[in-house]
């Protein structure tokens, strides 16, 4: 198995930041994790911040239907889905659909 890639920058939904002790300031990301692909990154998020993970992923560890995941500016489904490989410095954006209006 390929080793985890370090320095993956991750943004999580604003509503969940307090669950991992974050308050976004001027940085464009919330967390830095190590993972070789998106599936590994979500697993790592689950290990470190289970309260955040349960809001984003179902019991199979896959993103819930209203959660979209982007690597840099591309939707992961338009790449290789959860198997999308990561490169150091990538920005992963985990984004819930917004219902308010």
């Amino acid at each position: 198995m390929d080793p985890a890639v370090p320095d993956i920058r991750v943004t999580i939904p604003p509503a969940l930041r307090s669950l991992c002790g974050r308050r976004r300031g001027t940085q464009e990301f919330d967390l830095t994790l190590a993972a070789r692909d998106i599936r590994g990154l979500l697993d790592e998020l689950g290990r470190r911040h289970p309260q955040v993970h349960v809001c984003l992923c179902d019991e199979r560890g896959e993103p819930r239907p209203h959660i979209n995941v982007f690597v840099n500016n591309d939707h992961v489904r338009a790449r290789a889905g959860l198997e999308t490989p990561l490169t150091a410095g990538d920005l992963v954006t985990i984004l819930p659909a917004v219902s308010g209006g």
Partner: peptide, 15 residues
């Protein structure tokens, strides 16, 4: 295509 299904009750923030 973007959102597979409506979020379950209480899964999203509201105003």
């Amino acid at each position: 295509c973007l959102i597979g299904d409506v979020p379950g009750p209480g899964m999203t923030e509201t105003c």
